[in-house]
Design a protein around this nucleic acid. Sequence first.
DNA 1: CAACGTCGTGTGAACGGTCACACGGCGCGG
DNA 2: CCGCGCCGTGTGACCGTTCACACGACGTTG
Lengths: 339, 339
Amino acid sequence: MSAEQEKVRAPNIRDVARLAGVSYQTVSRVLNDSPSIKPSTRQRVLDIIQEVGYRPNAAARALVTSRSRTIGVLAAHMAHYGPATSVTAIEEAAREAGYRLSITNISTTDYPSIRSALDYLMSQSIEALVVIAPQVRVFDAIRELSIGVPFVTLESSGRDNGHSMSVDQVLGARLATRHLIEQGHTEIMHISGPQDWIEAEARMQGYLQEVTEAEVRTRAPILGDWTASFGYRAGLELLRFRDFTAVFAGNDQMALGFIHACRELGVDVPGDVSVVGFDDIPEAAHFFPPLTTVRQNFTEIGRRSIELLLGELRGGGHADSQLIAPELVVRQSVAGAPS
Amino acid sequence: MSAEQEKVRAPNIRDVARLAGVSYQTVSRVLNDSPSIKPSTRQRVLDIIQEVGYRPNAAARALVTSRSRTIGVLAAHMAHYGPATSVTAIEEAAREAGYRLSITNISTTDYPSIRSALDYLMSQSIEALVVIAPQVRVFDAIRELSIGVPFVTLESSGRDNGHSMSVDQVLGARLATRHLIEQGHTEIMHISGPQDWIEAEARMQGYLQEVTEAEVRTRAPILGDWTASFGYRAGLELLRFRDFTAVFAGNDQMALGFIHACRELGVDVPGDVSVVGFDDIPEAAHFFPPLTTVRQNFTEIGRRSIELLLGELRGGGHADSQLIAPELVVRQSVAGAPS
DNA sequence: CAACGTCGTGTGAACGGTCACACGGCGCGG
DNA sequence: CCGCGCCGTGTGACCGTTCACACGACGTTG
């Protein structure tokens, strides 16, 4: 009976105006802090707003200004560490700038599913789009559907379309591979991510570049799926022929799985085989052995992607792609090549 | 010059109506598939819609119906495995039901920050709210701010407010502890999560209950922060006195860190000390040793929370809290107590 | 002292939909 | 043959805000 808010319409701008003894336009001006308004009037309006708990209606605003103040996020595997971390940063930056986010996750990357996700976002009249779905297919879809809003793609280095914001995957992979080579390894396997992921491809390129440059024998990478389980199974398979002394895994999870397989087969890491991962997930420092890996700053990526988008939204001129440098984190999963 | 869409206003419902030779109301009826409409008319309208690429304007709809079709999500630590997984499921379920999500993440759980997050969501006139921020404080804030929409809290078992949807944390903790006891352990440490997390508290309760029931000596749990690093440091500290033979960690990460410490100090897991975790993150199966842990189905939680909210939104009568059973996953980090 | 710019404020229309209601035509029962 | 109900469709109002423009008062300038 006390808090029985029986269909009491929320106060609108005219209610506030009436109570403050001004016109609705004046209230609107206060809301959008327009310069020419008498301080005393402003204060009076502000007081009333506070008093009645007035909240501007976002829908009405969006309707009349035709600006939704919404940024769409299209993510694949949003639950993974990297994307999730970036999304968090994106959300924070967007909120700070007065934008809201509309996130959608795609579980499969087939064309219809991308299309439907994009449709879903467009139907909310997003003003900009962030894509964290680093599959080649997604980019094709975006180009093809030619969405009419500024967009930025995360984690898509190498595929420079003028709208990307990513850690330099190629460089990261080179760092990892070079580290292995510097330790004297000449037989280096690469367990890659899925072929259609741009990140996976870029890391593979980096590996390949470094390996050929150092005139070390190139080996055909094996294509995984990012999971620890795959790393484990791949390890079991690979270790039947001990014709390598080091492994560069496409991410930390696969590295973990691989190490698991090593242990099960009595192969010592790093004694017999050295391993380096990619991402530096928070757990990597506590793997056994603590994993040498390549750190990417996902937060930075997220933050800067919104910055870029916002700039484009305001300024007009669209900013260029940016590449963020990754960092090799040396721990204990790499040793010199056994003789 | 080709795709130069110079400020061409998107087609609206009246444009479609004109082109189809009907009134705008008829188009509206087609959109909301109202029953009484001649099939031929409907088809004609549909064709035009397709042809001109008409998209109903969500803002206009929201304005007139005063239904935003938006569900708010308030998350703490959205980048963590559990929340991220739940959010993914929530997103999918919501989208399927024609709702969109507005997600906001809080990094600190002080009152102002919760309040501002809630404000942010309310200003978007969300129709319902999902809270994945299992701190006591958050609940108090919600109650106090008495948001006028149905809400559900995830991961808050034990704190039954009639709106929760969670895995039974107490049961999970009992399962874990009992498993240890059944293996003959009588000196069991518990590394808990932060005290103000409801989950942490519930797991501690479960541990305490089981331990007292089995008439095993109770030990004061140590309060951690969920991170692997904490588990590691705690391990280093704890292992100075080897007065326990088993550890129940509040989550898998802390278990990992603890095991890391063990290894560094030459303590064998599970030979000298048994360890069980909580969550069953995908990596847990590949830890060394593979971690015995308690699995919670985060996807199920997310899915069902939306189901509950949707029911309340449609039906009216609000559903009860639900508890989902966790599952003990036995791997290799637990052995019998050393004599 | 008239003309003019500036300040602070108000008025009408528009944004793109839905809702409530009205309306003509047609089949059917009394 | 008239009245009634139903089917399919149209008309006006309204949701809550901003935009374009107008307007009165006042101070300044020629």
